[in-house]
């Protein structure tokens, strides 16, 4: 019998919450029953019918994990979900991180740590040496540290108030680690977090001429390159590809990104 397959485009798929893991007082991870194949750094759009649809990073793929900070209306609803509840997911969307070189420096600010866990596992499986730098305002806001500790990597923690790890910004231990690298041409910095942190990291990488892949955030609406809402201007250090004229000043986080690669 021949099989009829209808083209469903990008319609949402249902995922069922299997476990809810509290990461800190404002962040929880939803661990689903089902997997979602994707590359580290890609994102999804999570729909709660009647409430809304918002973008989140993919923190684990088999099963799917999303790590969500309670910052507003929809994320607050998500924090009320229990095992057995269903959510609707479109994705994976966007361009993820690409493995590069032999030394990886992963930097996460706040919930920006969430895509890095999957990335770390992926890079380690490719034989790449991984160091992770997590920063937050204070100890209670650091997330996923226990998960990172289970992996064979070197973990550096920083907090603005010194309540855990080093006091200061993540760029401080990052710069020290860059200076100790055996070969900077074989290294890549991967980062996800607030804009100010990304700009700081970009400047640091420029200073030491190191490749970097930064994951940017913007307010998303369509998530499919149509509305223009998520456009951002990239730093001058980014070389606009010849086949994407005009993209530096009008880069769509949902379509061109979220990750930006500067070599």
């Amino acid at each position: 019998m021949s099989e009829f397959r209808k083209n469903e485009g990008m319609r949402s798929q249902i995922f069922t919450v299997d476990q809810v893991r509290i990461e800190n007082e404002m962040t929880t991870s939803l661990i689903m029953r089902e997997p979602l194949q994707s590359e580290p750094g890609q994102f999804l759009l999570l729909w709660l019918p009647g409430i809304g649809e918002k973008p989140f990073s993919i923190a684990g793929i088999d099963p799917l994990v999303v790590t969500i900070a309670d910052v507003g209306k929809m994320t607050h609803e998500i924090h009320g979900l229990k095992p057995g509840d269903r959510v609707w997911v479109r994705g994976p969307l966007g361009r993820g991180y690409q493995a590069y070189g032999s030394e990886a420096l992963l930097v996460g600010g706040g919930y920006g740590a969430s895509p890095l866990l999957l990335l770390a596992e992926n890079l380690i499986s490719k034989g790449i040496n991984v160091q992770v730098f997590l920063g937050a305002r204070n100890k209670d806001l650091l997330i996923l540290t226990d998960q990172f500790k289970k992996l064979p990597l070197k973990l550096h923690l920083t907090t603005n108030d010194g309540s855990a790890g080093l006091q200061g910004f993540v760029t401080v231990p990052l710069e020290a680690a860059i200076q100790e690298l055996p070969d900077r041409n074989q290294a890549c910095v991967y980062a996800c977090g607030p804009k100010g942190m990304l700009l700081g990291i970009d400047a640091l990488c420029e200073k030491y001429r190191i490749a970097r892949q930064l994951s940017w955030e913007a307010v998303m609406r369509c998530g499919m390159g149509l509305c223009g809402n998520c456009r951002i201007e990239l730093p001058d250090t980014w070389q606009e590809p010849a086949d994407q004229p005009g993209s530096r000043r009008a880069w769509l986080v949902c379509r061109d990104g979220p990750t930006m690669f500067t070599q």
């Binding site: 209808k6 083209n7 469903e8 485009g9 990008m10 319609r11 949402s12 759009l45 729909w47 809304g52 649809e53 918002k54 479109r90 998303m220 609406r221 369509c222 998530g223 499919m224 149509l226 509305c227």
Partner: peptide, 10 residues
């Protein structure tokens, strides 16, 4: 408000 769009196949 979101959702505002999708690709439904055709």
């Amino acid at each position: 408000d979101n959702p505002v769009s999708t690709d439904w196949g055709c």
